[in-house]
């Protein structure tokens, strides 16, 4: 998109800003002067919105599941919504959208994070791994195998997040015993209640000692 501005280049920033301020000040000045605060504020937001959508998509480069992506996104798009709605990577789930359930857990540069509380643009140049990126062809990741074997899920909706979190939990060294696993997996809610089976799956993968 030609109107993209690069958030890394301050000159573009000031350009964008001056356009924004100019538009805001010129066209709304009279309205603001005669309307009560709340209305003015709404009008202002509305205008800001229109300007924003005109030229505030920003370029974004990331590597997702080993594939380099060159994208153009609105800054307000979360990593979760980018994956699900724009890239059709729907394996990463939206369970609450507020960082309270863990269903949206992905790996960023190998660390588990919540994609719902993360703006996509904050991941410029980073490596994202989602549930779709775990298996190598037909060969499932050991954690995926263990979840099937121990029946670590029912409806399956929290499962991608549980699996991404479980792999990181072992990598971090927080899976030394069952109590540790329970504590450090507590950010992943399973409403079906398959927790004990998930703990069994993680314990088995941990004990097998494979590099994850």
């Amino acid at each position: 998109m030609g109107d993209n501005h690069n958030p890394d280049q301050p000159e573009n920033e000031s350009f964008a800003e001056s356009r924004r301020n100019f538009l805001k000040n010129s066209s709304l000045l009279t309205a603001i002067a005669v309307t009560p605060g709340v209305v003015a504020k709404a009008a202002e937001n509305d205008l800001g919105e229109k300007i924003a959508s005109a030229f505030e998509k920003v370029p974004l480069k990331m590597e997702i599941n080993g594939v380099k992506q060159q994208l153009s996104v609105e800054p307000r798009v979360t990593l979760l919504d980018l994956l699900r709605e724009q890239l059709n990577l729907t394996g990463t789930k939206k369970g609450c959208d507020y960082g309270q359930c863990g269903a949206c857990t992905v790996h960023v540069n190998g660390q588990r994070v919540l994609s719902c509380l993360s703006l996509a643009v904050m991941h410029e140049g980073q490596k994202i791994t989602t549930i779709e990126g775990l298996a190598k062809g037909d060969q499932l990741h050991p954690m995926q195998e263990a979840f099937i074997k121990h029946d670590g899920f029912q409806c399956g909706y929290c499962t991608p997040g549980q699996i991404m979190s479980a792999i990181a939990c072992i990598r971090e060294g927080h899976a030394e015993n069952e109590a540790d696993i329970r504590e450090f997996m507590s950010g992943n809610i399973c409403r079906c209640g398959a927790y004990p089976n998930i703990v069994d799956a993680i314990t088995e993968v941990k004990n097998n000692g494979q590099k994850l």
């Binding site: 301050p10 505030e56 307000r76």
Partner: peptide, 29 residues
């Protein structure tokens, strides 16, 4: 969520400058 402007900075000074230039701007970490 409203649309907003987004900039990246790599020094404390640049960050303070960037946030000072606009009304209603916030740092994000």
């Amino acid at each position: 969520m409203i649309q907003f402007q987004y900039v990246r900075t790599s020094t404390p000074k640049a960050a303070v400058d960037a946030v000072s230039k606009a009304q209603n701007a916030r740092f994000i970490a």
